[in-house]
Design a protein around this nucleic acid. Sequence first.
DNA 1: AGACAAACCTGTCTGC
DNA 2: TGCAGACAGGTTTGTC
Length: 278
Amino acid sequence: MPELPEVETVRRTLAPVIGRRIESVWASRQKLRERLIPRARLARASTGARIEGIRRWGKYLLVDFIDRPAVMVVHLGMTGRLRVHANSDARVDHTHLVMGLSGRSELRYSDPRRFGHISVAERGREQEHPPLSVLGIDALTGTVDGAMLHEHTRRSRRMMKAFLLDQSVVAGLGNIYVCEVLWRARVRPTLRAHRLSRRRCGSVADAIGAVLDNALDRGGTSLRDFVAADGAKGENSHYLRVYDREGSGCLRRTCAGEIRRTLLQGRATFYCPTCQSH
DNA sequence: AGACAAACCTGTCTGC
DNA sequence: TGCAGACAGGTTTGTC
């Protein structure tokens, strides 16, 4: 479900929890993808403290607590939702974490598929924390430009689809937005990274910025599961140019091509064979 | 190095 | 109406 624009939308809509004090921490006893939520550790790290703010790195959210040396690290996986509720609201199925907050509110994490991740990192050493330690520069707030991409693509013979999907170079792009970025930059998903010219690296960098900015303006892409922390759906699905448009006409004005779907890295990949010629 | 498949899960949709 | 199978926005691990 969530790629960078969706995670950033969640981050922004979590603003109401900033300044709230954590009064209790409850966690289910089911494993997320790789482990149980470390309830005791999380409770020790946060109970009694106020939420200072929420940061984002790629698709991860980092929750800071005032005067505490620990940070809560959250990844939404495919179906994870982080939402703010009144504590009187009924819990939905598959709720795995509930932090009771001052003001009779709760921060809740639900995740039917349990592909998400919740852990505690040491503040100031987040980049040494295992899931974060492999992340590259953030696609939205980092300096992803033609020069940076050119430098990295020189050393890779992978297909551009795989190159951009790999979080260790640019962090935040997922399957939908990689398709959208490559369409916008007119780059074939199968093109080998090292074959990309300096100029075309600039086009890809520009496309990353434009695609993410546009998606963010529309509150993210809700195909089925995604909602912001206040429950609102994003409107970006109505503006996707290639994703899930197999058999439809290419939306580039000067192009008469037809969108194709293939499988790359085991993921559905959409592109226009006419204007993404190589 | 890099491509692929499988694994982790549940829910939803399609076709028979 | 029911049921099997495919598929889903992510990440990691193992194999070739």
